[in-house]
Design a protein around this nucleic acid. Sequence first.
RNA 1: GCUCUGGUGGUGGAAUGGUAGACACGAGGGACUUAAAAUCCCUUGCCCGCAAGGGCGUGUGGGUUCAAGUCCCACCCGGAGUACCA
Length: 953
Amino acid sequence: MDYNFGEIESRWQNYWREHGVYHVKNVSDKPHYYVLDMFPYPSGAGLHVGHPLGYIASDIYARYKRLRGCNVLHPMGYDAYGLPAEQYAIQTGQHPAITTEQNINRYREQLDKIGFSFDWDREVRTCDPKYYKWTQWTFIQLFKHYYDNTEGKALPISALEKRFAEKGSEGLDAACTEEMTFSAEEWNSWDEGKKQQVLMNYRLAYLADIPVNWCAELGTVLANDEVVNGLSVRGGYSVERKLMRQWSLRITAYAQRLVDGLEQVDWTDSLKEIQRNWIGRSEGAAVWFPIVNEKLGMRNEELKFEIFTTRPDTIFGVTFMVLCPEHELIDSITTPEQKAEVEAYVTWAKNRSERERQAEVKKVSGVFTGAYAVNPLTEEKIPIWVSEYVLAGYGTGAIMAVPAHDSRDFAFARHFNLPIRQVVALEKDAVSDPATWEESMDAKTGYSVNSGFVSGMKVKEAMAAVIDKIEEMGIGHRTVNFRLRDAIFSRQRYWGEPFPIYYKGIKGANGIKDTIATAIPEECLPLELPEVSEFKPTATGEPPLGHAQKWAWDEKNRCVVDKALIDNETVFPLELSTMPGFAGSSGYYLRYMDPENGERYFSEQAVNYWQNVDLYVGGAEHGTGHLIYARFWNKFLFDLGMSVKEEPFQKLINQGMIQGRSNFVYRSKADNSLFISKGLIKNMDDVTAIHVDINIVDNDVLDIEKFREWRPEFKEARFELEDGKYICGWEVEKMSKSMYNVQNPDDLVARYGADTLRLYEMFLGPVEQAKPWDTNGIEGVHRFLKKFWRLFENLSDEAPSKDEQKVLHQTIKKITDDVERFSFNTAVSTFMICANTLTDLKCNKREVLKPLTVLIAPFAPHIAEELWHQAGESTTVCDAEWPKYDEKQLVEDTVKYPVQFNGKMRFMLELPADISQADAVEAVKAAPESAKWLTGEPKKVIFVPKKIINIVC
RNA sequence: GCUCUGGUGGUGGAAUGGUAGACACGAGGGACUUAAAAUCCCUUGCCCGCAAGGGCGUGUGGGUUCAAGUCCCACCCGGAGUACCA
């Protein structure tokens, strides 16, 4: 009987579905294991072959763990909120919920065909109110908590209020936007509006005027990781800095814990490094520099500013100071003579787009304020400049410039002819004239020179000594700075989670005095996304939710009402922004544990059982986005006592991107209908390379008839062939429609079956590695399955031979090793070798072949299931047990031993594997080569089985 | 610039410091067949040689080691992340 994959696969897929074979319970005596894929955004284009790569790998591991006796949670869902559906809605008027639903159905159909073992009963969709209820709930918790640095965790805002009422801000060390100092009396005297304003400064989800990445084309703000080179990741539109009132998450409060947590997880070094760079922790010192007030002819202690430096040891080399153009002190310190110039510069700098600024990073610009600061250690007067190269968002927006030891300060000093003073040298006496230098000496090595009390110290010692001194003088302190910024959480979009927030107006003498952002009661969640008449921003520039008629909060009746009823007494306006894409994906892995729970995000029982994700598979492109946000989200829930592990994803595997492999035909420039086969082209300048649809090319051979039909202009095409074939050129490019190199998995499943596709995607190479998609080898994998199938014809109950046993046990061992280390490509090879050998041995023994169906079940579940039944089993192969190998069956007959003599290797000797020490010594002496080296009896023979023989005379 | 990665046949890729190139594709040759499909067998890193056999080979140059694709140092080239981050 032939291997009829189509029939087998659909039959078993139906069986699995009908019998709920992959349904998993939250109760079991078995060990638990959680395998998770990054859920997809269901785009209109459907699945391409790149998507399933990670899903297949995780499915193999999930199935393997099941066979190893684990209770495996392996869910799937959809990241269903997102920009493309909304853009499509704006163009067509089609509601995003409808297109999203359609896309999800298509995804599901495609996924089902590949034979995954997902527990679909646990499916989540981020746009489902039952799900986003908990996204909103978490947001409210963030809003109602602050981060206490002393406790090292999030605490309720109510505790903070109590504290303020009792002792004001004294002794408080909390994450905040701006440091505040006030007494209990002051706090108690403030009205509600003022108090709320102060609390907002501490909330983990807070509203603030912040410079945001505004994208006019998309009509929304974007997070830092959604902007690359001044352009939006989605669409590539230009992005500008703009001050706007936005919701943000105080993720910076968790910066240190986000760095520390990386030590505990089993991720690749490169991904950990990406996150460390993004968080950008740097140790250094904060130092206050006083400003000289020329008019008074003295130092003005009132006017001083704080800088951050990672090189406190170079403080003796400071020759100027630089403020960022946004710095608040500029106005008050600029001298009248410099005023016009400074203002012009500041205006110019502020109006530059991010893109312009980044494009001209190397161009030096700046202006002198006319003011001077005093170096607190030398009493020296140093000029204060303003320049773009100092960024407002990092540190304090002000620096001490040490041109001799910082390349940017160096360039600035050279450009404006400011002094450069060497304070670090590689050797203690290696001082030279900086005027002769071509570049600064930035390395943190060598010795301090010209540096007062630290001269002669090593750089590291000098750093510590300077900080100690500064702390002693009370003008600064040791500190840590992070590059990570708070995550902007508002999007001016329709298709996202609505904020469960309304704005309570407090009336004053002339209308509304303050508006207080207020969370709707948790019991009223979810706050459902309202219907709108249009998906575009409103005429007044409000976000799309401005079109929603029924979008106001009735505080008394605790419900959403028509916004015409807003009276600012009991009915208030609701927030018009929605949450960003990463909101829904930040906690979905927890919801899978208990997806139907209406009372809680997830039950205590469920999270105590599953703990966290054991294996997470997905792309490294989420390194600075989702994977940071989700870790933050989880840490916050951990502080609330909800999640039980600080890190959500224990082991992480990044599947490599699948690139497209494009094919080209070459049209002669001399003759527009003549196409020349690749090998016959003498000069590439004579031809034009044209992308050709990979679906009409097989193994780089063009299907000429299909090519003529492909497009009307090729109807009359003529060809110069080599050996009767037209050979196409190829190149690796991004997989995209415009390059005609998109491979759809459905076509391959139809042609070769899901099992072949699964094996082939794994066979392509290591899962982690990026690689071009190329169907050239798929036939080989398919042939293997046919060969494997044939082995099961006429099964015999005869006892297997020694050779057959050996093949089996070697295979079990190798496959087990390969799966454990996620080396699925070598595992597939191992199967092929096994099948080849058994075919050669004409092996049809049930005892040998049946365990193989279990081994292959994670990789090719359908054929395994079918053959498992043919071998006489009535249960499903999913309930089988992973075979064990017998060490005895594995031992090689002979082993090569390197023979060492007085420590020097003299020769290799092939000896029986199970040789005794005495026999080994005899064999060494008997070996002809040994005669040259062995004189007399060896004093000592060190024999390490299978490894080495060491002889001492 | 900084950080991380990788560099092995015509191609994808194998190799706990121990026979480099497993496995597969492609190519060449052959068997079966009227023919095709399917299946099977042989050859296939490069150079010399009819052969036996020999020489050279893992980006380049050094080093450690009895032994290096693998470890160390320097350099060259690709890929990714990030970028006036003080």
